[in-house]
C-alpha cells in the first residue's frame, strides 16, 4: 500500500508484509435492532503496528470483541491468514495465533500472579517454566509479585501481567484494548515502550488507544472510527497531519495534554 518512509522517528509506512488480518463490512451489536458497528472494514499486514482511534462509543471495543469471537457479527467476514474466524470459539481463535488484552478485567484477580501465568502457559503447550521465565524477563517487575493475588496489583503491574499473559502464547497478532487507560503518566511511557519493543521483535499489533496522538506517532497505520463506521484511514503520520482528523479527533486530546 505505502512505501516505507521514515521521518523524525515517526513511522509512516507499513512494512511490506502480507495481509494477515482482513475484517470486511462488519455489522454487530448487543441488542436486537441496534447495530453498534455498521459496516467496518480493516486490514492488518504482517509486522505492522496498527491503531484504531475514535471518540467514545464509536464501536472500537466492540470491534475487538467481534474479532476475538466474544460477539458474533450480524454480517461481514474476518479472515486471519486466510482462515475465516466468524463462528469459531474464542479458544479456537486464540489457537490460530491471536492474543487479546481487554481494557478492564484483564487478569484473574483471585488467582496469584504465578497462577495467572501458569494457566496461560498450560494453554500454550509444553515448557511452561521456560515460558514463564521469558515473560518475567520482559516484565521484571512481576518477579517480586508472583505469590500475590492479581487483584492486589497496581494498575501498571496489572497491565504488565495482562500483556504477559497474552504474550506467553507467542501470538502472531497481539490485540490490545486501550493499554494505557487509567495508568499514571510514567507507566504510560513504560507501557508504550514495551509495545514498541514487542512490535520491533516481529509481533504484529492491533491496538485501540484513547491517547490518539501518542498511538499514531508509533503506529505504521491508523484507522479512525466514528459512529460505528470507518471515517478515515491512512499512515500514522498522515493522520496526525490531516486537518480534519486533528480538528475532530485529536484537537481536544492535544489541548488536554498541553494543559
Amino acid at each position: 500500500m505505502n512505501a516505507v518512509d521514515q521521518q523524525d522517528g515517526a513511522r509512516t509506512g507499513a512494512p511490506a508484509g502480507a495481509e494477515m488480518l482482513v475484517m470486511e463490512d462488519i455489522v454487530a451489536g448487543y441488542v436486537p435492532g441496534v447495530d453498534i458497528l455498521q459496516g467496518v472494514s480493516l486490514t492488518v499486514r504482517q509486522g505492522e503496528l496498527v491503531s484504531i482511534i475514535g471518540p467514545n462509543g464509536a464501536g472500537k471495543s466492540t470491534l475487538l470483541k467481534v474479532l476475538m469471537g466474544l460477539l458474533r457479527p450480524r454480517r461481514g467476514s474476518i479472515r486471519f491468514q486466510g482462515r475465516e474466524l466468524v463462528g469459531l470459539k474464542p479458544s479456537a481463535i486464540v489457537a490460530l495465533g491471536l492474543s487479546y488484552v481487554p481494557q478492564v478485567r484483564n487478569v484473574f484477580p483471585n488467582l496469584t500472579v504465578r497462577e495467572n501465568l501458569e494457566i496461560a502457559a498450560a494453554v500454550a503447550g509444553p515448557g511452561a517454566p521456560q515460558r514463564i521465565q521469558r515473560i518475567l524477563d520482559i516484565f521484571p517487575d512481576l518477579r517480586d509479585k508472583l505469590r500475590s493475588k492479581a487483584g492486589t496489583l497496581s494498575g501498571g503491574q496489572r497491565q504488565m501481567l495482562a500483556m504477559g499473559r497474552a504474550l506467553i502464547l507467542e501470538p502472531k497478532l497481539l490485540v490490545l484494548d486501550e493499554p494505557s487507560a487509567g495508568l499514571a503518566p510514567q507507566m504510560v511511557n513504560a507501557v508504550f515502550q514495551k509495545i514498541a519493543e514487542i512490535n520491533e521483535q516481529g509481533c504484529t499489533i492491533l491496538m485501540i488507544e484513547q491517547n490518539a496522538r501518542r498511538a499514531l506517532e508509533m503506529s505504521h497505520r491508523g484507522y479512525v472510527l466514528d459512529m460505528g463506521r470507518n471515517a478515515v484511514d491512512d499512515t500514522g503520520r498522515a493522520l496526525l497531519e490531516n486537518p480534519r482528523v486533528v480538528e475532530l479527533y485529536l484537537g481536544k486530546i492535544a489541548q488536554q495534554q498541553d494543559a
Binding site: L70, S91, V94, P102
Partner: peptide, 8 residues
C-alpha cells in the same frame, strides 16, 4: 470471557 480469550 477472559478465560475464553486466554485460549481456554
Amino acid at each position: 470471557d477472559l478465560a475464553w480469550v486466554s485460549g481456554i
